[in-house]
Simulated scan of single mutants.
Amino acid sequence: MRRIPCVLMRGGTSKGLIFHADHLPTDPDARDRILLRAMGSPDVAQIDGVGGATTLTSKVAIVRRSRRPEADVDYLFAQVNITAPVVDTNPSCGNILSAVAPYAVESGMVAAQQGETTVRIFNENTRTVSTAIVQTPGGLVTYDGAARIDGVPGSAAPVKLDLAATAGSRTGKLLPTGAVRDVVNGIEISCVDMSVPMVLIPAAALGRTGYESKQDLDADHELLARIEEIRREASHVMGLGDATGKVIPKVALLAAPRGGSGISSRYFVPHVCHATHAVTGAVCIAVATGLEGTVAHELAKVSDGPQRTVRIEHPAGGLDVELAMGDGLFPTPDIRRAAVVRTARRIFEGSVVLPLEV
């Protein structure tokens, strides 16, 4: 049998394996065969691997010490398909990002500081740098704390993420089409690329409230078909090409907030509704609420001023994004802060055991 060291971690509302890059092949095909077998894909139950049979629990992070002066570590995210032999490294994952930082410190890639340790993370998927602040009292990572996030039971130590430098993550532009609104298939949408390229759709434009449960949305096959048609057409308009079989751009159905401030979102990944919300998607939507003329700006209820907190309501509760951004659209507004608080937990450490032929 073949044993490859790894750690199983929860990051935010996601869970996955984290590997040191030195322990995996550099050839992508060979690497992907290992990741598929480790997760137990393709199989709807992932019964022969450690995958949890949902998109939120079939994820992988590959981490190495960075040679870039602006970063401490490099992070490659991989979404392992559950029912097909596909490993997708096109998207990123902000929830798993929150596990990368404590992993980097505990693995010795980043020296722990007294109290808190800042980790600069270069995302190989988006070619952008984010920062994460990990709690390190006494120079050791702690996972115990009082921070709570919707979608995760209990409390844990906060991991503070700032994704302010992620505008134009895949397209090179915050507004890939050059406009705050576009019309696709007769529906007014906004195309925004902040941390992840997104197609923002007012739920009412598709005859929905935007407050539906994940279960109701996943069972609404007519709606899912319409969303996919819009997503594929918008992908061309955004310069991303044919989105068939790809997970980006992502889509969100938006509505006015139920809680009095922020905005309500149902985030699709992309063919089912997320049980909570992607961090990258939340940051994208929050920034879009500050861009006058977007559908998000029209629906949101957010305080004025250069610094604000935007609450993104989702099926399991909400997620707060701290924003600091200037006015103006072109070429890009001055986004100084786009931060969220996540939590993480190291669940087990050891080796994944695979057949020798993998």
Results as ranks from 00 to 15, higher is better:
residue 1 M to K: 09
residue 5 P to C: 11
residue 6 C to T: 04
residue 6 C to I: 05
residue 8 L to V: 08
residue 10 R to H: 08
residue 14 S to M: 07
residue 20 H to G: 13
residue 22 D to G: 15
residue 22 D to Y: 13
residue 27 D to Q: 11
residue 28 P to I: 00
residue 32 D to H: 14
residue 35 L to G: 02
residue 40 G to E: 09
residue 43 D to Q: 06
residue 45 A to E: 11
residue 45 A to G: 05
residue 46 Q to K: 06
residue 52 G to A: 08
residue 53 A to K: 08
residue 55 T to G: 09
residue 56 L to D: 02
residue 59 K to S: 09
residue 62 I to C: 10
residue 65 R to Y: 06
residue 67 R to V: 06
residue 72 D to S: 02
residue 72 D to F: 04
residue 74 D to W: 01
residue 77 F to E: 01
residue 78 A to G: 03
residue 78 A to D: 12
residue 79 Q to D: 15
residue 81 N to I: 00
residue 82 I to H: 05
residue 88 D to K: 03
residue 89 T to V: 14
residue 92 S to V: 00
residue 93 C to W: 08
residue 94 G to K: 00
residue 107 S to N: 13
residue 111 A to Y: 01
residue 124 E to N: 14
residue 128 T to I: 00
residue 132 A to I: 04
residue 135 Q to M: 13
residue 138 G to Q: 10
residue 142 T to S: 13
residue 143 Y to P: 15
residue 145 G to E: 07
residue 146 A to T: 15
residue 150 D to S: 11
residue 151 G to W: 05
residue 158 P to F: 08
residue 158 P to L: 09
residue 159 V to G: 04
residue 162 D to H: 01
residue 163 L to H: 00
residue 163 L to D: 02
residue 166 T to C: 10
residue 168 G to E: 01
residue 174 L to N: 06
residue 177 T to C: 14
residue 178 G to S: 12
residue 180 V to P: 02
residue 182 D to Y: 04
residue 192 V to E: 00
residue 192 V to W: 03
residue 195 S to V: 02
residue 197 P to Q: 03
residue 203 A to I: 08
residue 206 L to A: 07
residue 208 R to L: 10
residue 209 T to D: 08
residue 211 Y to A: 12
residue 219 A to Q: 15
residue 222 E to A: 15
residue 223 L to I: 12
residue 225 A to M: 11
residue 228 E to H: 11
residue 237 V to W: 10
residue 242 D to E: 09
residue 247 V to I: 12
residue 251 V to R: 00
residue 255 A to H: 02
residue 256 A to Q: 10
residue 258 R to G: 14
residue 265 S to Q: 04
residue 267 Y to W: 10
residue 268 F to L: 15
residue 270 P to I: 02
residue 270 P to W: 03
residue 271 H to N: 14
residue 272 V to T: 15
residue 274 H to W: 00
residue 275 A to N: 12
residue 276 T to Q: 05
residue 287 V to M: 13
residue 289 T to P: 00
residue 291 L to D: 11
residue 297 H to P: 05
residue 297 H to N: 14
residue 299 L to V: 09
residue 300 A to E: 04
residue 300 A to R: 07
residue 300 A to Q: 08
residue 301 K to H: 14
residue 304 D to L: 09
residue 311 R to G: 01
residue 319 L to E: 08
residue 319 L to Y: 11
residue 322 E to M: 06
residue 325 M to V: 03
residue 326 G to P: 02
residue 327 D to C: 12
residue 333 P to L: 01
residue 334 D to C: 05
residue 336 R to G: 10
residue 337 R to V: 01
residue 338 A to R: 04
residue 340 V to A: 02
residue 341 V to L: 07
residue 344 A to V: 06
residue 347 I to G: 10
residue 348 F to R: 15
residue 351 S to T: 14
residue 353 V to L: 13
residue 355 P to W: 03
residue 358 V to S: 13
residue 358 V to F: 14
